[in-house]
């Protein structure tokens, strides 16, 4: 029998976006993917305002000490099954901020990460591909 819950997830993943200390670059490229040129909403990919309703957590930024506990709490609030995308160079490795005194990240030091999308910022096409890869993990 087909697991209806799992099947429906693959059709329409809801994203929750968390900015953990990013420069806005990745954030605007993520929003860009929703707007007319890329329009991922036609595939059912929707940005969601609450982590409790989301399937995929998209984290941007280098994760500083002030946002790290909040990132952890948001991850815990999300229902299973869930996937995490680390978006951008800062989220995947710390990037240019790697030797800052205020870095607690990168993301995989705080929560488990399924998909890494590098780039500063990654192009919307790369973000969409990241979401597809995260879907395969769900």
């Amino acid at each position: 029998m087909v697991n209806v819950g799992r099947w429906s997830l693959k059709k329409s993943p809801w994203l929750f976006h968390f900015n953990s200390g990013s420069c806005n670059n990745c954030d605007i490229e993520l929003i860009d993917a929703l707007t007319p040129r890329y329009d991922v909403e036609r595939f059912g990919i929707l940005l969601q305002g609450s982590p409790r309703h989301a399937d995929i957590l998209v984290v941007t930024g280098m994760v500083n000490h002030q946002t790290a506990p909040r990132l952890k709490r948001i991850y815990e609030q999300m229902p299973n099954p869930k996937a995490v995308i680390a978006l951008g160079t800062c989220a995947t490795s710390g990037g240019i901020f790697a030797d800052s005194y205020h870095i607690a990240g990168p993301v995989d030091r705080i929560i488990p990460v399924d998909v890494y999308v590098p780039g500063c910022p990654p192009r919307p096409e790369a973000i969409i591909e990241g979401v597809i890869k995260a879907l395969a993990k769900l």
């Binding site: 200390g21 670059n25 930024g61 500083n64 002030q66 990037g95 901020f97």
Partner: peptide
């Protein structure tokens, strides 16, 4: 909530590297 220590980092880089760093203060 978005403090990243940019001024600290900048005082540890050469003047020619810093444009790349301050570019990432804000992506907009």
């Amino acid at each position: 909530y978005n403090h990243r220590g940019i001024e600290y980092l900048s005082q540890r880089r050469t003047i020619h590297q810093i444009p790349m760093l301050v570019e990432r203060i804000c992506g907009i």
